[in-house]
């Protein structure tokens, strides 16, 4: 049975600022997003920095609008849209990274948004480790996740890394287990 967004938010809220690997499936994807960016962020009064590497930020924004989620405090670092060579228009709360191979630039955009948040607490959601693995070797991806998590730890931020069940290589799964403080599963209820 899938975990509800509120249940996920409750579990996250019990933790101090940490790095959490969140195992999700297609049918729990939107509940996981809602749990992090709406329920959990609201509960803890956090800004959300959403790294969209799987689907364009506009698609996520459209879904959040349908779910009537307040987007006042949600910012996107989007590494997908630029490669699609689509419309040059982008909402104010979206920062584009040219490609998912520019991992340093993803870190820089997150750093910029944190700087702009002027000390307010933040949760950074990486959607997803599997999407980044399409474009990057496991060596550089591991290095990226390790540096990103440690930078964010130093800033007392929460980081949630989506991992799509059944799509991670053993190397990536091992790395996630090593660098994250905790692994949660959106499907674990009733198991």
């Amino acid at each position: 049975m899938p975990k509800s967004p509120s249940k996920l938010a409750d579990e996250l809220a019990e933790l101090p600022p940490s790095a959490i690997a969140l195992s999700i499936r297609d049918d729990t994807y939107f509940d996981a997003i809602r749990g992090v960016v709406d329920r959990f962020a609201t509960k803890k009064d956090l800004n959300t920095i959403y790294i969209s590497a799987a689907i364009p930020s506009q698609s996520i924004i459209d879904v959040l609008k349908i779910l009537e989620i307040d987007m006042e405090r949600i910012y996107f670092v989007d590494s997908v849209s630029h490669t699609m060579m689509g419309s040059t228009k982008k909402p104010e709360n979206v920062l584009l990274v040219e490609s998912s191979t520019m991992l340093e630039n993803i870190m820089l955009k997150v750093e910029y948004l944190l700087k702009k948040s002027e000390g307010k607490g933040s949760v950074i959601l990486l959607d997803s480790i599997n999407a980044l693995a399409i474009h990057n070797s496991s060596t550089i991806l591991s290095e990226f996740v390790h540096i990103l998590i440690n930078n964010l730890r130093a800033k007392n931020a929460y980081i949630v890394l989506f991992s799509i069940e059944g799509f991670g290589s053993e190397e990536i799964n091992n790395m996630m287990g090593f660098v994250c403080d905790l692994t949660l599963d959106m499907s674990e209820e009733g198991r």
Binding site: T101, L103, E104, N105, M107, L108, K109, E111, Y112, K115, K116, N136, S137, T139, I140, S142, E143, F144, I147, N151
Partner: peptide, 19 residues
């Protein structure tokens, strides 16, 4: 280091060596 020029000033992060 890799840098970005932003309205909040220059930001730097380490260059990832794997690539």
């Amino acid at each position: 280091y890799v840098l970005d020029l932003t309205p909040a000033g220059i930001l730097l992060v380490p260059l990832l060596k794997g690539g």
